[in-house]
């Protein structure tokens, strides 16, 4: 976890230039918070029109094309990834991309595997998370809608009942803000509950990340929408739900292995705490946080 060279170096981030014409008499004190907020949401809406929350499948060659004039090591790594993954999906970089990717990848995994036992196992862990939040003093009504919406999605990817959905419908739901935002908030609640419950364990990592208290970290970096996830969030979610997560980093670090290039990754494997059942599902892959990869031969 402390392995800092695995923290993704944003690959070739093309800074989005917003053309703002500053006039000489433009004074910041003329702008109120609400103006700033409005402008921010206008920018998000522009983005929203361009990228869905979860994109269509794309071949890795489309990623290659993007980095053509970039660092040669990235191109080599993309080639290596191409041997392991058949396609990628991009997610919108709005600060919730980790949670949205996880939602899609996990539900897609259940839809394809029809693994009843896995659904039962996760449901048991979800109930434990509910209990955690109650024990921490959260009012039920502030989180129950988010829990029930997630459980509904989980049920619906299992086939054979009236509420069952197809793969196309799952893609649509993952792009529907009213579903996706609720599921993201469900994950944020679960993540925050896990961090608070095991605050002693998480404290040193949080100190290293943001130099704040556990309480403050949860309030400012976990519970609000749009706050980006880091290794602390991923560890907590992985432990709480008992679902393993693999993050693949597409960065410029050299990863020579036996003369050839390999792509570094980090596996988050759940630590079973107080008897929480740990599964072995490992199906989330992110490149530099914004792209999910799809395993070959679906």
């Amino acid at each position: 976890m402390q392995n800092h060279d695995e923290i993704p170096v944003e690959p070739e981030t093309e800074s989005t230039a917003f053309n703002m014409d500053f006039e000489a008499d433009d004074d910041w004190s003329n702008y109120k918070d609400s103006d700033v907020m409005q402008q921010q949401s206008a920018i998000f809406e522009q983005d929203a029109a361009k990228f869905p929350f979860v994109g269509d499948k794309e071949p890795l060659s489309s990623l290659e094309a993007e980095y053509e004039s970039g660092s040669p090591i990235l191109l080599q790594k993309i080639k290596v990834l191409g041997k392991e993954f058949g396609a990628i999906r991009r997610t919108r970089g709005d600060g919730n991309c980790f949670f949205r990717s996880f939602m899609f990848s996990y539900l897609e995994h259940i839809l394809e595997s029809q693994d009843q036992a896995e659904v039962e196992r996760v449901k048991t862990n979800v109930e434990k998370c509910r209990k955690t939040l109650q024990d921490l003093g959260y009012a039920d009504f502030t989180f129950e809608d988010f829990f029930s919406l997630f459980l509904e999605q989980l049920e619906s990817v299992l086939q054979g009942n009236d509420a069952s959905i197809s793969h196309d419908e799952l893609v649509l739901r993952s792009r529907d803000q009213s579903v996706s935002d609720y599921v993201v908030m469900f994950f944020r609640f679960v993540t925050s509950g896990e961090i608070r419950k095991r605050s002693e364990f998480f404290e040193p990592f949080i100190l290293g990340l943001s130099n704040t208290t556990v309480e403050q970290f949860c309030k400012t970096s976990v519970e609000p929408m749009g706050e980006e996830s880091d290794h602390v969030h991923i560890t907590a979610l992985c432990d709480a739900l008992g679902v393993a997560i693999r993050v693949v980093y597409l960065d410029r670090s050299s990863c020579d292995k036996d003369g050839g290039v390999s792509v570094n990754h980090h596996d988050f494997v759940p630590t079973p705490s107080d008897g929480a059942t740990a599964g072995t599902v490992c199906d989330l892959d992110l490149f530099g946080w914004v792209q999910t990869a799809k395993q070959e031969g679906e």
Binding site: D33, M37, Y138, A139, F141, T142, F143, F146, M185, R188, F189, K219, T220, E223, P224, M225, G226
Partner: peptide, 12 residues
């Protein structure tokens, strides 16, 4: 802050 960028549904 909680009415702006630090908002979370946790607040009633």
């Amino acid at each position: 802050d909680i009415l702006q960028n630090q908002w979370s549904p946790i607040y009633d």
